[in-house]
Amino acid sequence: MTVHGGRLVHSRVVADLGDVLDLALEEAITGYATVEPQDALLLDAEGVGVLALEAGVPVAARHTGTGRVGRETLAELSVPGPCRVELYERDRPVQFADDPSNRIPPGLPADRLVRDADLANRTRSAAAERGTGERTDADALEAFLTDDDRVDAIRREARTEARQRAAEWGLTDALAEPVDSDVAVDE
């Protein structure tokens, strides 16, 4: 079964995901891995956990059966015992990786599912070098500071507020520009 198409490069029942994550990282595979814990096989639970990969780095996760996304998917997959893993390569990242709610920190699968700190660190380094990975702080900050309209609005509002408060607090004369030039504040 393929959930997002692509070319199957690896399929195995494994004790943990370490080797598969390592392989994906070394080969810089873009695509996804499906993960089906053994207890799910036994219980005949529906669906699989899917880890989206960009240049070998896990960037997002969701479960096709339970609908859990992001970190919660990892919690669901974090059960002891063997699991079936399939690794697929695609020309472009899977689409669900674009949804922020599906995103995961790159090192989290290695930390949570394999408990391999070295692999987690190598994954984080690769994420930084390959310009992929968690779209949280770095992406959010960059997006924020390059959104000129948003930044200008904050500054304009603060400027107006500062001058209003200065008047309330009797600090008007300490302002750099006389109050008369306020005309420009709300330009």
């Binding site: 904050i154 507020e161 500062a162 001058r163 600090l171 520009e177």
Partner: peptide
């Protein structure tokens, strides 16, 4: 920063 700038 904008407050500070307002006060020079």
């Amino acid at each position: 920063r904008e407050y500070a700038r307002s006060y020079g």
